[in-house]
């Protein structure tokens, strides 16, 4: 409603400004770079798999020590309903735990930001708590909450909330004080300063936290399942391992990794959509970060 309808001639005026780009490489992040990002890792993985297959066949290793990739693939193919069922259980745990962890992390960061005493009280505890191995907490959660869904969700949340809290708090604190003063001269209320300034300014930091959390989110759920569960990929790994069905262990790992990667992909995508200005900033010679 406020935006005039004509589309801006953005690219034209900018290129006419005559910034000299090296010939043949118009954009450092062009399609060539994209292709490389896919081709090289895929080539590496394929050659590793080939080597693995070769080693297993040449030395005829028994399948309960190291199954060949082809056997892992075959197992996945034959037992896919089992894998799918267990994957679904873990996905649910990760999703619920992730959502809880993000919510708690955000609230904690905001609370610590706005009440300095709370930060002073909580921060050392928060750091120390991360030194306690999650493996030590998992059995306690089983004691308190049983073998069901809840302890796994809590485990995932415990892993997820920490990077979110630390990153968001950091982002909130790094808001350029000059920008805060600008808002004050404009008569902005504290709520407006939060919504229009501090939170948007903290977004890049929040997304850094989210990326770390996305990668680690499955770990919490799997540990929760190891300690006591009747379903889920962690349970599957443990029981298959106990029966020396090593191909199934590898199958479970193969089912697990895409969960974290998908989450990471979702975070990266969300960042691109929600913070388009950030990628522009990254391309600039001078950083666009609110002036330090």
């Amino acid at each position: 409603m406020l935006r005039p309808s004509e589309s801006p001639g953005l690219t034209a005026p900018r290129s006419s400004a005559g910034t000299a780009e090296p010939a043949g490489r118009p954009w450092p992040n062009g399609r060539g770079a994209w292709l490389g990002q896919i081709v090289y890792p895929v080539a590496l993985v394929l050659s590793l798999l080939a080597a693995w297959e070769g080693v297993v066949r040449v030395f005829s290793l028994p399948r309960y020590i190291l199954p060949a990739p082809s056997l892992v693939a075959l197992t996945l193919w034959e037992k896919w309903p089992v894998f799918a069922a267990h994957t679904w259980v873990t996905v649910q745990e990760v999703a619920a735990g992730g959502a809880l962890g993000i919510a708690v992390g955000l609230c904690l960061a905001l609370a610590m930001f706005f009440f300095a005493p709370l930060e002073k009280a909580f921060y050392p505890l928060l750091i120390t708590s991360q030194n306690v191995p999650v493996f030590a907490i998992a059995p306690l959660l089983v004691v308190w909450f049983g073998y069901g869904f809840l302890p796994k969700v809590l485990m995932a949340a415990i892993i997820v909330f920490f990077p979110i809290t630390v990153a968001t708090l950091d982002g909130l604190k790094r808001t350029d004080p000059d920008l805060v003063r600008l808002f004050r001269t404009m008569g902005a209320s504290p709520a407006q300063i939060l919504w229009k300034l501090r939170l948007p300014a903290a977004m890049p930091a929040l997304f850094s936290g989210l990326k770390i959390s996305a990668i680690y989110s499955t770990i919490g759920a799997v540990i929760g399942e190891w300690v006591g569960a009747g379903a889920g990929l962690g349970y599957l790994m443990l029981s298959a391992n106990a029966q020396l069905r090593v191909a199934e262990v590898f199958g479970a790992i193969l089912c697990l990794t895409p969960i974290g990667l998908t989450l990471l992909g979702a975070v990266v995508l969300a960042e691109r959509v929600l913070l388009p200005w950030q990628r522009l900033a990254a391309r600039e010679d001078e950083p666009l970060e609110p002036h330090p």
Partner: peptide, 29 residues
């Protein structure tokens, strides 16, 4: 304060807002 508009030496534009949304900051507030 309510009588003064201050343009500081640094431009202090909000990097996450377009130019349009940047210049309309004060009325929006």
């Amino acid at each position: 304060l309510p009588l003064i508009a201050y343009m500081q030496q640094k431009d202090l534009l909000l990097p996450w807002r377009t130019l349009w949304d940047n210049v309309l900051l004060a009325p929006e507030i």
